[in-house]
Simulated scan of single mutants.
Amino acid sequence: MDKDKKNEVINEENEATEQKKVLTKKDLVKSWFRWINTVEFSSSFERLQSLTFVAWISPILEKLYKDKDDLVKALKRHLVFFNTEGSWGTLIHGITVAMEEENAISGKIPDEMIVNLKTGFMGPLAGIGDTVSWGTIIPIVTAFFLPMAAEGSIIGAIGPLLVVPLFTWTISYQLFMLGYKVGRNSIMEILRSGKIKQIINFAGVLGLFMMGVLSAQFVKMEPIVSYMISGEEVTLQSQLDSIIPGILPLSLVFLISYLITNKKVKQSKILIGVLIFSLITSYIGLF
């Protein structure tokens, strides 16, 4: 098949797919509006933004999946842990909607592909959003209006409250719609090329990589125990580091992962256990 013929076939397939679209622009706007206004309402230690994610996407799923079992299955896969920057992370939301719509139409999108994509990209987009919005734009806007506020101008007080939401809402809306548009087209190309398995593996590896980075950065276990060897004081931490640096935090992460994955222990119970362990070991002077 020559290139022109191939492009013609692809265009015909895209047009046929467009005709099958279930969601309207109104559906997308309403769902985006619900997310941007409730993004931090349900934050919890166990699932962070997952409940809000399910809340905004529920009307979409109800329209896509008429079968009750399919709807329940879709809702459950979005109850997994999710956390990203509220504005920039909406790129994930748009792509997720596109994937769910394609899955409802063709049934060719595996559940793990949707979950792994969310998990894999929530960290990088959170990093971008925190850096650009919270680390750059908001401080600049605040610094711009501070002199006005210091002089008693009402503009200095209300200015940041108007400019910052305008910026974040614009970014979130544009990325949401971009994610839906690009995500839908990309999915059609993926289905034709047979690269679903590769994308699942890539998203899974990326998600594990980000979890590893976060674990190394935030999980700290450094024993303060020391003892004498040949008249020289040696700490237990230095001895452990000589074997494998960070072996205790790594072991703790693996233990928690094992309890959640294999023993099905609830995250809330693990959180309480870690808290009790921390208090006891701190009290006896181990950590």
Rank of each mutant, 00 (worst) to 15 (best):
V132G: 01
M177S: 02
Y258K: 11
S133N: 05
S257I: 13
G273L: 10
M228F: 01
D27A: 04
W56H: 10
L162S: 02
G159I: 09
L61W: 06
M148A: 12
L91W: 05
I128Y: 09
M177V: 07
K20L: 10
K26E: 09
I114H: 11
T131K: 10
S31D: 01
M211N: 11
E112N: 07
L236T: 05
K68F: 01
Q19W: 03
W134P: 00
L191C: 00
A203D: 01
L64T: 11
P124S: 06
A104S: 12
K66Y: 03
L175W: 07
F287G: 03
F277K: 14
L79W: 13
L255H: 07
Y283K: 12
W88P: 00
F167R: 14
L79K: 15
G86Y: 09
I272S: 08
I10A: 06
I196R: 10
I276M: 14
E12M: 11
K269D: 05
D27E: 05
T119M: 07
T90G: 00
E151G: 07
N11V: 07
T24F: 06
G159Q: 15
P110C: 04
G212D: 09
A143Q: 11
E85H: 14
V225L: 14
Q19D: 03
S193H: 04
S43A: 02
I158T: 05
V115R: 11
T119I: 06
P110M: 12
E46P: 06
S251I: 14
V253S: 10
S282T: 15
S257A: 13
F53A: 08
F287L: 13
E8H: 02
L79I: 13
V205H: 08
L279C: 07
E85T: 04
K20W: 02
R47I: 09
T119D: 03
V182F: 10
I284K: 14
S50Q: 09
I280D: 09
Q239P: 00
A150C: 01
T90M: 10
M221P: 00
L117E: 02
G246E: 06
R34A: 01
S257F: 13
V205L: 13
V234C: 08
G152H: 09
S278Q: 08
I158E: 00
K220P: 00
F176G: 00
Y180T: 02
V163T: 02
V274E: 05
N14I: 15
I256W: 14
T168Q: 14
T38E: 12
